[in-house]
Simulated scan of single mutants.
Amino acid sequence: MAISAPQQELPNPPRPPKQRAPQSLSARLRQPRILLAAALLMVIGAGSGILVGHMANSEPAAHLGAAAVVPGGLARVNGVIPLESDGWLPVDAAAVLMEPVPAGSHLVRVELELTAMDAQGIAFSADDYTILGLGSDRLDVLWASPEVAEARQGSVVSATLVYEIPNTAVALTLEGEHGGRLALGTAHHLPER
């Protein structure tokens, strides 16, 4: 009697992987993940373009002590001094300067000098000058002396402007309504109280 070996089953030969038919670009974009990623990239690109375009269109701020061109001449910030540091108050101080300053901010006086270079001279109005900073609102002047002035060619207007600014050391600029951006530096910032 012949003994036969048990038959071994042979494994199935490997099957080649199924190949998908190539999808068109529009079919691939219908997939939610790809559509979301494409939309996100478009939003980031548009935001970056707007930011870069805005920064390219704004004039750079003149450093503290340097002059910036304004209609009729030049403007320069000669100092930014916290009122708390030297106790200065004007003789005719407005009530707003006597009130307590909210936590997280302090009062500064900005010493602004305008030099009339053009034949028509230069006109100054304190209300035309505001402080702007990254992530902060436009800050209006609280008190000024003089409030309004004009200077003929070759003359200078020296003005003192008082603002309430945040304590955080952000890049602040004094900006005129008709041009001129003047950096205020960071030495005037006070630590949190």
Rank of each mutant, 00 (worst) to 15 (best):
G49K: 05
G87T: 03
L64R: 00
V52P: 00
N78H: 09
W88N: 07
A67Y: 00
L74M: 07
L36K: 14
A75C: 04
R28M: 15
V96C: 06
L112A: 06
E99W: 12
L97Q: 10
G49Y: 13
L25D: 10
E84N: 07
V110C: 08
A103H: 11
A61W: 01
I81R: 01
Q23R: 15
A38G: 14
S24Y: 06
L35Y: 11
A75W: 04
P32N: 11
V101W: 13
A46F: 13
H63S: 09
D86W: 13
S26P: 12
L40C: 04
Q23K: 15
P22W: 14
E113K: 11
P71F: 03
S105Y: 13
A37H: 01
S85R: 07
G73N: 05
G49Q: 08
M117R: 09
V52M: 08
R28S: 12
L35A: 15
V91M: 14
S105T: 14
D92H: 11
H54N: 07
P82M: 06
M42S: 09
V70K: 11
I34C: 04
A56D: 01
Q31N: 10
I50C: 02
G45V: 03
A61K: 09
V96Y: 02
M55W: 08
L40T: 00
W88P: 06
V77Q: 12
M117N: 02
D118W: 04
